[in-house]
Structures are given as structure tokens and as C-alpha cells.
Amino acid sequence: MSDFSIFEYGLGILQALLIIVLSPLIVGIMRKIKAKSQKRIGAGICQPYYDIIKLLRKDEIVSDQSSWIFRVTPWINFVTTASAAFFIPVFLIYSPFGVVGDVLLVVGLFALGKFFMMLAGLDVASSFGGLGSIREMMMSVLVEPALFMTIFVIALFYDGTNISTIVSSANDTSILIVPGILFALIAFFIIMMAETGKLPFDNPSTHLELTMIHESVVLEYSGKNLALMEWSHAIKQMILFALFVDIFFPWNFVEQISLVGISIGILVFITKVSVLASFTAFIETLVAKWRLFRVSDLIAMAISSSMIGVIFFFL
């Protein structure tokens, strides 16, 4: 393995910070596009930033039934999600921290955050929290096989689970030459919608017992803790988007490191992610929330799609 200089590690940290800092912006863009496509005006795209700053300054109320699990969860959630951002290439073709962990570690970090989130939902002794927790539990159980199968397909086609290796071999080929990866794309897209709580799975904009999943888990949070929860959700979404564009649309990475090159790289990255975000926002406008027990049909589709991907690789 080649060793990286301090400068390159600095660039790696810059990449992670970009993901962390830009994530609320993507949320804002998606909300704006959703509002526009539903003929509403909608808040400005910087609104999530104002929300987070406002929440960070507020006093908080904690349920008297809760234990330290409840108070620790937002921190664990944020730290695991933000750490996962260190492994994602943004404008470079690699991440200097790629040696430390691979895509399975990223999945594991997400799962750790989710585990504590489900516990926090149970901790407050209200039925809302429990309701959110079991739904979240069911979804994550079902998504898991699809996720690992998709990782398997990607690892087969692009030799490795190391994200830097995946992205660089993806950069050498194109989607038209490796058609099996198309199946992985479909599966990954469905998983992405499920993991970030998008519309056929979960309606993030309502507080209605029938529909909410993620919202009911964070229902009891306020102040700083709520800000951290919301922000880590945004970061998770950003990481999944970034992985999606890195794996399936790996064009325009910076090769010579210069100030101009890097700023162009960042701009290209933001454009790619915003296009993807707008696309998902449109899909969200088009579909309705599915009944909870029908969601498994959609995930079954992701599973079978990645299964065919495997077949395409081998036969």
C-alpha cells in the first residue's frame, strides 16, 4: 500500500468535512424541489442550516423515564455517521483513509447508530417510540440482505470492498461495458430510498402514527440532541448519495492536485449529487407511501435485482 503524505491526509479530512458541511444543503435543495413540484413556494435552500443552529442554542427537555442511553444516542449516532464520511471519495479518486476501513465498515457504522436509535425509541416508555423502533427494526432486517447482496455484486465487478479500489476500477470502465452493474444500480437505489427514509418507505414530512417511522423515534428529542439527530440523518443521506455517484457515475475526478482542479472537482461533485437529489425528490413527489407490509415487496425487488447481477457476473 502506498503511504500518503500529511498533505493528502489533509485533503482526506477536507473531503469528509465537505460531506458533513454540505449535507444540510442537499436536504434544503430536496425540500425546495419537492415544494416546487407540488406548486408550493417552499423554504430557502439554506433553511436546514438555520434550523440546526437554532436548535443547538435551545434548552432541551428530557423525558423523566429515560436513561443515559437516550442522552448518549444522538452523540453516538452523529459520531458514527460522521466517521463514515471519512471513507468516501469526493473530488479525489481515493480517500486516504481507505486503508482503515471498507464499505462493510461504513455499513457497520450506520448499523451501530441505528441500533442505539432504536434503543432510544424504546427508552422513553411512550408507544410512539416503540412504534418507530419496531418499524425501523423491520426495515433494517429486510434491507440487510439486499444491501449485502448489492455490495457483493459491486465487489465482484470492481474487485474489492475497499471504496477507493471500487471507485478507481469504476472509473476505468463504464456502465455500458459492465451491464451487470445496472442491476446493482437499481438495487442500490431502492436501498438508498429505504435507508434514508424516502417516500415509498417512510414519509418524513408528517407526524402521523400511521405513516411515520424515523420521525417517531426522534419524537422525544429537543434542542441540541434533536439538532444532532437531524444533522446525522442528513449526513447519512449525503454519504449514500456520494457513494451512489462515486460507484455508478465516476467521472471527473481531480488528477492533478491544484487549487483550481480541486474547486472544479468540488463543483462537479456538488452538481452530480444535486442532480441525484432532485431526481429522488421528483420520485418522492410521484409515489405515495406504501403500506408497511408491502414495503417488503419493493425490497424483494432489490434483492432479486442484485441476485441477477451476480448471475450476470458468473455465467
Binding site: R294, S296, D297, A300, M301, I303, S304, I311, L315
Partner: peptide
């Protein structure tokens, strides 16, 4: 056969056809 099982069964059928 429920939808989710039939989707997966179809994937298996595709596997079998390739085989």
C-alpha cells in the same frame, strides 16, 4: 404466491435459465 416471493422466485428462474 405473494409478490415478494414471486419476485425472488423469478430471479431464481433467471439463474436457472442461464445455467
Amino acid at each position: 404466491v405473494s409478490l415478494r416471493i414471486s419476485v425472488i422466485a423469478s430471479a431464481l428462474l433467471v439463474a436457472m435459465s442461464y445455467f
